[in-house]
Design a protein around this nucleic acid. Structure first.
Lengths: 322, 322
DNA sequence: TTGTATGCGTTATCAA
DNA sequence: TTGATAACGCATACAA
């Protein structure tokens, strides 16, 4: 096991004081070029790395971002791709991602408390925000830096930084895609009203049809399962729909199996790729990068937009159904 | 923002020395019961938590486990469920999960180096181990604690701790399931030979058929895509197979779409659940818990088995195909 | 059983 | 431009 190389070792090797080494690394501009080179050479030669723990003791900054990893939901799991992007972007910005779990919002807040006491993460990234989310107010009250992936639907004070994907624009594009193919009766299968995300996606579809003066017949599912999608699709197609836009890939999959009309899903999950389902793809890596950027800006006092709204893109696939 | 509560605050509040507080937390048995209670009450009242950074400075232990999060592969992503289980088990054992990314094994080793210098994780959890994996030898040479999820196939010295799922037992169970249903010509669609995991899964199938004195006709796919699964299924069914066992859900999905015979997949991904595909389910949460357990044992010097082999279970689903 | 002194590696402050 | 000193919070050896 390699011995730990400290700043004192580097200082000795380069023939300077510890402080100068620290300056070379943290405020290079105040060190004479020649000294700087010599110190950097020693750093390289000895393989020196700052100790995160010692730095944190002194500065109070951990360079850690805390992120909750959620139990896998019923198939529509998009989170792992977001998380990968987040880890990568964080590393580039000099941060590391620390994972935690929680079963509900209350216990999540308890975890914040623990985490803050022990590891003192510099910031939090929250996902799955929803109506009356107590987590954001808890963090905001304490002045803790955080960013959410997802808008604070329905909250009058969307004052905190967030990154989101424009669901309405996505379903609007999907609807236009079907209009361009000649369809005039385009149905929508959604979630029951009240979830901000679902309502937003439905709006994109209905507004697009309204703009063309076409009727908008939709159906809701309670849990967004494939089985519910199946019966909703039957219903809509019986009523005359010749194409369907869906709130999720799960629902779309059911619709696809139940009918022969064109179906467009949302999220572009592996399921969609596997069965040839056209679907709306969220720019997750980009969203993750924006989250890190907003957080890093807040942490460094740098100016940055408080909100980022990204556009999904339609991944058109060859429908293998007869 | 709450002020930081230190061990000195607790000591003052409880009317004892800092050392006594430390003892209460780290060696409770040597402190008088009454004092212990008083100190614990103060800890509770002030909301004191040990500072991970300060503790790490003193003890050299970070209570951090480093785990690589990989780019999502082509659909079969099982890793996020494993990761969730890992985070949960780690928390229970007093560890946190630190994420990192790497594009290949070489850069992963470079990341070990960085991570070790900066955050000094106590241990590493590796996934996707393969033939001639340089990462395990790198870690082993340096005496760094690690555990792999996946056996070191083909390595003569499987000397390091690992946790794995018994793929052969899984495909054997799947094959028996089909035998019990009366099938006598059961095909297998696998990956090309050489991947330990794929070979293992094929073995379970072929051995089970051999034990029954039945012929074993299999086909390989190069990349394990659904499209390849489709043509392999055509081929096997034309040759007389009346049922198929597959190395993965991706391949199984293709087979399912191409033929009408019963198909069994592997991994029980969301795709399988969505399309009603019977599949072998890996006990990922349990695997993750075992990984933490093995690592925690190694870190504390506690005795523990070096290898854990878990059994997958067959999730039988109603096939919706006509 | 409890208290005192010390050092872990770093950086901020201030002096040279 | 560089260097000396102190301090972050904790845990250990040792003394009381």
């Amino acid at each position: 096991m390699a011995e730990k190389v400290t700043i004192a070792d580097v200082a000795r090797d380069a023939g300077v004081s510890r402080q100068t080494v620290s300056n070379v690394l943290n405020s290079p501009e105040i060190v004479k070029e020649e000294t700087r080179q010599r110190v950097l050479a020693s750093v390289e030669a000895l393989g020196y790395r700052v100790s995160a723990a010692a730095r944190q003791m002194r500065t109070g900054r951990s360079r850690l971002l805390a992120v909750r990893i959620e139990p896998t939901q019923d198939g529509v799991n998009v989170f792992d791709r977001f998380l990968h992007g987040l880890t990568e972007s964080a590393a580039r910005a000099g941060y590391r991602v620390l994972l935690y779990t929680a079963t509900d919002d209350r216990s999540e807040i308890a975890t914040y408390d623990e985490l803050l006491g022990e590891f003192e993460p510099d910031g939090f990234v929250l996902t799955s925000t929803h109506h009356g989310d107590v987590r954001t107010s808890w963090l905001a009250e304490r002045g803790l830096p955080f960013v959410t992936f997802g808008r604070p639907w329905g909250a009058p004070d969307g004052g905190h930084p967030w990154v989101d994907v424009d669901g309405a624009a996505g379903t609007a594009a999907a609807t236009r895609h079907l209009l361009d193919a000649g369809h005039r009766r385009i149905g929508f299968i959604g979630w029951q009203p009240g979830s901000g995300v679902g309502d937003d996606r439905r709006d994109g579809w209905s507004r697009t049809l309204a703009a063309s003066g076409l009727p908008a017949d939709g159906a809701d599912t309670e849990n967004g399962t494939a089985a519910e999608g199946e019966s909703a699709a039957h219903e809509l197609v019986s009523a005359g729909a010749t194409a369907l836009v869906c709130v999720s890939d799960s629902v779309a999959l059911g619709a696809m199996q139940a009918t022969a009309v064109p179906v467009i899903g949302f999220d572009d999950t592996p399921v969609a790729a596997a069965v040839g389902l056209t679907s709306l793809s969220q720019p997750l890596a980009e969203a993750a990068a924006s989250c890190v950027d907003l957080l890093a800006a807040a942490l460094s006092g740098r100016e940055a937009p408080k909100h980022v709204l990204l556009q999904p893109s339609l991944t058109v696939r060859k429908d293998p159904r007869p």
